[in-house]
Amino acid sequence: MNQFVTLFVGGLFLGAIYSLVALGFVTVFKATHVINFAQGSVLLLGAYVIARAHESVGFALAVALGVLAAAVASVLIDAVLIRRIRRADLGTLAILTLGVDILLATELSRRIGTDVLNIGAPWGSDVTEVAGIRVATSRVLAGGVAAVLVAGFWLAFKFTDFGIAMRSAAEDGEVASLMGIRLNRVAATAWALAGALAAIGGLFLTSFPAAGVTGSVGLLALATIPAVVLGGFDSPGGAVLGGLIIGVVSVLTAGYQEELSFLGRGLGGVAPFAVMLLVLLVRPSGLFGTREVTRV
């Protein structure tokens, strides 16, 4: 039982990180209708910049640089590649971002090589004990940061002018532009936010208990795709919940690996996708997604 609770709480904290990345994914999809597969390599870019910069400029400034780099890279993808073909087919745009992802990830892995770069977090490999459960300090911090950011997002979406512009544009871009809302600006903001969230996610995904920044960190972000699909693609709340579910499922299946060995090794990597499929069988639009309505 104790093991279960430990794993469950650990899963929630990991899930919080996934939630952040997934939230960026959904923000971009809502604002520009692009399924942004480049999110993974942008995450890697953020983590890479932090890992490279922290020795010379200190950790705090390195994080700021990493977040900025990821946000700028993300905006560039939109402004240079996506903007001019905004009305292209959903699939075309998704494949375009896949291509960007491959390019960026390849270049970064080439630079990293076989090294494992230390992210340089001051909390290092500390462990915090909460109510008898031992969790890595970085994960607890990740949970706190995620909670603050998600709450901040929610408030901004709900109450600020920017939030209203974003939601109007998401609902009906053409009408929003008739109301004087500048769609390109809304799109750029959404992409910047997604990049920033990816970098923060990258920071925590490469902190202890993970070893550090390797060329394959971008692949870790793949786990957010089932989270997004599960939550329902266009629902920020769904992305957060989806992230938490995927975090818990992957930690639990990894933790009970021995008991579940009849299902084969490495179940932890597969389980998120299995859960995603199960949810989609029951709710084809995800937990909170808008059902696609087509009129003849």
Binding site: I164, A165, S168, D172, E174, V175, M179, G180
Partner: peptide, 22 residues
């Protein structure tokens, strides 16, 4: 626009705010 096209998922107040952005 034709067919009204209000932002259906926004509240009435938020719709008016969206208009006010310009």
């Amino acid at each position: 626009p034709e067919g009204r096209r209000v932002f259906a998922n926004l509240t009435v107040e938020e719709n008016l705010r969206a208009g006010g952005l310009a």
